[in-house]
Design a binder for these strands. Structure first.
Lengths: 245, 245
DNA sequence: CGCATCATTGACTTCCGTCAAAGTGGGTGG
DNA sequence: CCACCCACTTTGACGGAAGTCAATGATGCG
């Protein structure tokens, strides 16, 4: 049985094919500053959106007022997609000068219902999002704080600079955002980052700008959890294709 | 700002509109027994699938041989969808007499590329999966073991019997499966279930059959984490719409 | 310059993972 | 039919990773 390495599952490709020209023609571009909301949770789903420049976060707020960052949004990311109804999360801007394309939902759907090519583009975009969210699930499952932070850094690196290594990566989100994204506390995020820095695996030119010095060791850490310490107790090695047909 | 309660986000509607008749005509039905694989990770994506009866799990295996249950699959759930390429996870059957409809992918895509109605159905199905995975992310984020287990029980109840309360719910998966689904150990799953049983919140007629006695308290537990103890430290109450436009 | 937000570090506590062991139950073969 | 076996389930004891509380630095904005 071949296996899906979690390490590789996390590094999804985020570049999406541009929505068909017909869609771009109905887009309006909106600009936001840090802290502004693109839409709120429970807002009627009037638009679909795509980040053009900058970054944002998609988040929910629990009854107790605590926050959950469901996803970070970077250029080319399509979000808020779905059919009739209301947005289930809020989208809030992280960096200044964030430009967002807005596609009126009704119009998008009308076009999708009459243009097979557009329909296909949207379908592919949805599949892309599915892949990404599945990777997110496998990432959140990682047991130790250091694994999740490492996975986050690798994901950030890939989404920000692609194959370009040796680059300084700007971190548009706060430590709080990272904590709420990784399901841990700010303090733990800081502690892990400090550890990684002291070990020479990463370095900071400023708090919001990181550079990965040792990719192998970083990947080692986020893959290490898989190697047996924490979760997922059923070793397939012990039950090799037990009941496979 | 209206908020998306995590509690309600979890209870997604899982009933999907049947794929258009044209799709059903190309389906073949396959039957499986407990433990068999519907497909393996990295298998070429030859089919899309839908559970008709029974249950299955979608899982990945890490490099270390530990397992990660990405999702449970119940009747009407469409899975393995996506475009060209390979499956990223494996699908394995949980209960005997599980019937699965298989839709040849190439054929599905050809139909989708020529039939706007089918294209729409598939799009809606993808959106459905997106909603479900987003709920999964917010669930995995829950800090404490008891919250995740409670959320799981509520999700199970909803997927199995819908609005019907006071029903005995069959649990098709093992405690190991639940643990690998919730990112915790079997022991912890057992302990939490025992606690809930001792508190009279749930009861078991057998290990694989549960009944929820006190819905309010169960929902209270999985919502309680939100009320402040664990994660998600940024209280929006403290920063009310700080930079909202 | 002063305030607010964010980031970092330390001390303490608790939850849950680990290890170990015993109990349960269904299926199979004698 | 019964007994054995195996996989699954449950419980207990212990330790460590990470959450909580608290306090001090940094950074940027008005």
């Amino acid at each position: 049985m071949e296996v899906a390495s979690i390490g590789s599952a996390i590094r999804t490709v985020y570049l999406q094919p541009a929505v068909a020209p017909t869609l771009e023609t109905i887009a309006t571009i909106e600009r936001y500053q840090h802290g502004q909301s693109i839409y709120h949770s429970a807002d009627p789903r009037q638009f679909w959106y795509r980040i053009l420049t900058g970054a944002a976060r998609k988040c929910a707020v629990t009854s107790g007022g605590t926050r959950c960052v469901v996803d970070f949004l970077f250029p080319q990311d399509l979000f808020g997609i779905g059919s009739e109804g209301r947005h289930r999360f809020a989208a809030e801007v992280l960096s200044n000068d964030t430009a967002v394309a807005r596609y009126p939902r009704r119009l998008v759907e009308r076009i999708a219902d009459s243009d097979l090519l557009v329909a296909r583009e949207i379908r592919e975009a949805a599949f892309q999002s599915l892949r990404h969210l599945e990777a997110r699930v496998t990432m959140l499952r990682l047991g130790r704080a250091s694994e999740r932070v490492s996975a986050f850094l690798l994901e950030l690196a890939e989404r920000r600079s692609g194959e370009q290594r040796d680059l300084e990566i700007a971190i548009p989100m706060s430590r709080y955002d990272i904590a709420d994204y990784l399901a841990m506390t700010v303090e733990t995020v800081c502690r892990v980052l400090t550890q990684l820095r002291l070990q020479g695996i990463i370095s900071f030119s400023s708090v919001r700008s990181v550079r990965i010095r040792d990719w192998d060791r970083l990947e080692g850490i986020c893959g290490a959890g898989s190697i047996g310490s924490t979760f997922g107790h059923t070793r397939i090695a012990l039950r090799p294709s037990a009941g496979d047909r």
